[in-house]
Every structure is written in C-alpha cells, then in structure tokens.
C-alpha cells in the first residue's frame, strides 16, 4: 500500500485547502486525480510528496509517516514532477536528467557509476538517448516533457507523482506520452493530475475525484467517470458512453 492518507487537512497561508481527506491507494498502477481548478489537486499531490506539513492527519507511504522522514530519505522513496517545470537555458538533456540523482549523490562528490547507469537507463526508457547532448530548450514540447519524466525516473523511486504531465502537448505527443506512462505504471505506483477525462479513463487504473478540498469519489474509471460522481465533482452534467473495449468516453453535457 504505497499511500495511506488519514484525515488529512492542509492549510495554505492560513486558508484551509484540503479538508479531512481519507483514503488509501494500492501499490502499483496509475491513479488519476481529477477535479475543477482550485479543488486542491496540486495541494494534495504536494502533500503526498511530503512538501507540505499537514494541519491535521497524516500521509503514510508504505507504512511510514512521511512528515517524519528526513528530506533525502523521502526523496529516495517519492519523486514528484511539478507542473510547468522550466529548464534553465542551455541545460542539456543529460544534465537535466542527472539532477534526478540528487538524493542518491554524496554531498560535494561527483556522480558515481551507479548514478551514470541510472541516468542512462532513464534516457533509454524515455527514448532520448540520441538527444542527450542537446539543450532542453531546443527540444519539441513532447521531447521536453519526456526529458522531465526521465529526471524523475533517474530518481529511482517506486512512487512517482506527476502534476498535469500531458499539459500543452498536442494529441500525437499526448498519445506517445500516455504509452510511456502506462509502462511506468507496470513497475511503479504513478499518481498524476489529469484534466482530460477521456484520457484519464484510458490510462488510469483508478480515479480520485476532488471538489473543494474534499474527496468525492475514488474507484476504477468505470465507476468514477460516470454522470453522477462527475456532476458532484464538477457541478455540471456529463454525457458518458462506453467504447467497445469497455472504457468510458466523457464529455460535458451540451458541448
């Protein structure tokens, strides 16, 4: 059980953002977080990464209260990619990916063979070996996003949190990245925030819906991505249908 969240409340700048969330996520697979803007998705992801101190309650990762973990130990278990991360100009793909080794590197010492091997594996996994020497800012949007995911892979955590990894990508690049994320979900636990509900239906093993900092529903896509939970989550009606493979397709009603 990678995540066990008990009665979690988070305040930001004195304002309550999450209210007593309580759920568990099974190990492995892909969990999608959905919800309207301002519903607390990013805050929840940051809390799961241990970046925000809970006002009340706790986040357990594999049985361990993450608030009690030293930052480095935490960073060896849970990786997180924030939304719209920007690479400094001129930074090469390999340099960026190597940043993911930070929690494993000894202070002030250069990368060792283990680190370099991990970087190579990460580059391989996202298919950027040939572009490793190129500056990140010279890549296409899809390649750039793969470079960021390689950074997180090089961190070698069995839990990966991603904040809207598909944002600003065109459809072919989205499809390509979804394939990569699926592969990750086979060997690790992936939790990610998604806006596109139809994509969520296709990639996620389970979906978690938030509204105004409260849990609306959690379960397999077929259950959560249906008219009633969606109305409760977004406050509008949805038209749902099912493709021959049994996966739902979801659109706001009247669109």
């Amino acid at each position: 059980m990678p995540f066990e969240i008990r009665d979690l409340s988070i305040h930001l700048g004195g304002m309550p953002v999450l209210h007593g969330l309580d759920f568990t996520l099974p190990a492995g697979g892909i969990t999608g977080i959905i919800g309207a803007n301002g519903s607390g998705k990013t805050t929840m992801l940051r809390a799961m990464a241990g970046l925000l101190p809970p006002e009340r309650g706790l986040v357990r990762h594999q049985g361990q209260d993450i608030a009690a973990l030293p930052p480095r130990a935490r960073a060896r278990r849970i990786a997180m990619l924030p939304q719209s991360a920007a690479a400094p100009p001129g930074l090469t793909v390999r340099q960026l990916v190597a940043r993911g080794r930070t929690p494993w590197m000894r202070p002030f010492l250069p990368m060792g063979p283990t680190d370099r091997a991990a970087v190579d594996r990460a580059l391989q996994a996202v298919g950027l070996v040939d572009l490793a020497a190129r500056p990140v800012d010279s890549l296409s949007g899809g390649q750039r996003q793969r470079a960021w995911i390689a950074l997180v892979l090089a961190q070698e955590c069995d839990t990966i949190l991603l904040d809207e990894p598909l944002n600003f990508l065109d459809l072919p690049h989205q499809a390509e990245l979804v394939g990569l994320l699926r592969q990750l979900g086979e060997t690790r636990s992936v939790v990610m925030i998604l806006h596109d509900l139809t994509i969520a239906a296709r990639v996620c093993d389970q979906v978690l819906a938030l509204r105004e900092g409260r849990l609306v529903a959690i379960g397999p896509p077929g259950t959560v991505l249906s008219p009633e939970p969606l109305r409760e989550t977004f406050g509008i009606g949805f038209d749902c249908t099912t493709l021959p493979d049994g996966k739902p397709v979801v659109l706001p009603a009247g669109l």
Partner: peptide, 22 residues
C-alpha cells in the same frame, strides 16, 4: 561549495524539495 545546491534551486522550489533539498 554551493554550486550543486544552486543548480537544483534553478529548477524551482518544489522540484528542489522533491529532490531532497531543505
């Protein structure tokens, strides 16, 4: 000696913290 820290901070506070920096 802070070169590595500066490198990481350039990536943004959240990512730097997720990489284990205080």
């Amino acid at each position: 000696l802070a070169g590595r820290v500066l490198d990481r901070l350039e990536l943004g506070d959240d990512l730097a913290r997720a990489l284990g920096l205080r």
